[in-house]
Design a binder for these strands. Structure first.
Length: 373
RNA sequence: GCGGAUGUAGUUCAACGGUAGAAUGCGCGGUUGUGGUCCGUGUGACGAGGGUUCGACUCCCUCUUUCCGCC
């Protein structure tokens, strides 16, 4: 079995499991930092290994637009190219329909994107997307989906669900075809859309489940809906998705939001939040969020987090990291990013431990209290 | 000493005889499948004195600041 749940928490739906890919296995739940263009911004592969990050996610469309996909292909795959010893996911680029700078339009056959570098107009079909992700040779690929905006009407979101199901079928068929001969197979996840509407989410999930994907992603959250709306849908989908398939809540990176979703049975997470926020001076700590750029930290000799044992917190002051971020120095970004990723990694390792000990509910509560403002 | 220029927000610059703008900085929020160094918001100024005028940051005079040139 590619995915095996190994422990179920008594009080919540939180679970621990093992995901097996062609590049090794990893314990769930886990969080993947975003390595859109083949690098987790500011961090080296050695940093990631040191932190204990096993999985990162890259972006097939962005790599393709920057000629990265062909370079990666020459290397035989993204892991070798970026010297990543673990597992690699790729996102399809469906999310980039959210980005007006590169998205043009879409129809039933695919999506028009413009290359921001050359100005060239490109048509990405679901078939093409599968080919790019296989060129990149990630361990887990995502279907090309259609991203509705949070502000869209229910009709528009229903249309996105229709198109996402249509493309999922094409993706699945083409993906199977392309790697018929392959011994080590790339996994493929379907992406459930439907916004905050239970009926649309249900339809989307059932359409995808009938195609039998290796895992199911929940897309379209973190874009303006309330957490209440989000968790209601996650709860609902957890009941529909087969227990032996991993659930991946795409784009969610807020610490408490992750833990809450774990309590509802989610297995996989990714987000740009820890890396992007680090560069902007927003740090995660054991005592809540730290806005490092505030003047009160100007002379602070304290570490970012006094309860953290990462090398940044053992060696560097808030004042130093703040000063280097203020001056746009690479080292400032690196130290802040390292800490945020470390924090999230340790948090999720603790979460797995607490699930195994059946103490997850208390841990969640404790973290919720710390992150209240 | 003589001549010329100059003085507006912490800083760099606008505008206008009739409620002084921006950028940047600083403060406070935000940031969620990364076209990225982002977004929102707040704070904050007419060198001093006199004159002309209904009204002067604006025009005139004096002083003063800073800069340039010449002795």
């Amino acid at each position: 079995m590619p995915f095996t749940p190994t422990h179920q928490d008594f009080e919540t739906l939180a679970r621990v499991g093992i995901l097996k890919t062609k590049s090794g296995e990893v314990e769930t739940p886990f969080f993947m930092p975003v390595a859109t263009r083949g690098v987790v911004k500011s961090l080296s592969a050695e940093d990631l290994q040191e932190i204990g990050i096993k999985v990162v996610i890259s972006n097939a469309l962005i790599l393709y637009l920057r000629n990265g996909a062909e370079i990666v292909k020459k290397f035989g795959g993204i892991r070798k190219f970026m010297n990543h010893k673990g597992i690699n996911f790729t996102d399809s680029g469906g999310f980039q329909m959210y980005s007006p700078r590169i998205y043009i339009s879409s129809n039933d056959k695919g999506v028009f994107f413009k290359n921001p570098i050359s100005g060239e107009k490109l048509f990405i079909t679901p078939e093409k997307d599968m080919e790019i992700q296989l060129d990149i040779n990630s361990d887990v690929a995502m279907c090309l989906d259609t991203m509705p905006m949070y502000s869209h009407s229910k009709e528009e979101i229903a249309e996105a669900v229709r198109k996402t199901s249509l493309w999922a079928e094409i993706c699945k068929k083409h993906h199977d075809e392309l790697q018929k001969e392959n011994q080590e197979k790339q996994m493929l996840f379907g992406i459930i859309q439907g916004g905050i509407y239970e009926d649309l989410r249900e339809k989307s999930a059932k359409d995808l489940i009938s195609l039998n994907f290796d895992g199911y992603s929940i897309g379209g959250f973190g874009l303006g809906e309330t957490r209440e709306e989000e968790f209601k849908i996650v709860e609902q989908l957890k009941k529909i998705v087969p227990q032996d398939k991993p659930i991946y809540l795409m784009g969610i990176g807020d610490p408490v939001e992750i833990l809450k979703a774990i309590s509802l049975g989610v297995d996989i997470f990714d987000s740009r939040m820890p890396t992007q926020n680090a560069r902007r001076g927003m740090l995660f700590t054991s005592e809540g969020k730290l806005r490092l750029m505030k003047e009160e930290h100007k002379f602070s000799e304290e570490p970012l987090d006094k309860n953290c044992d990462c090398f940044v917190c053992k060696n560097y002051s808030r004042a130093f990291i703040r000063y280097q971020l203020l001056n746009d120095e690479a080292v400032g970004k690196k130290l802040a990013t390292y800490h945020n990723i470390y924090f999230l990694q340790k948090m999720i390792e603790t979460a797995r431990k607490k699930i195994k000990e059946n103490k997850f509910k208390d841990f969640l509560k404790e973290m919720e209290e710390k992150y209240q403002e």
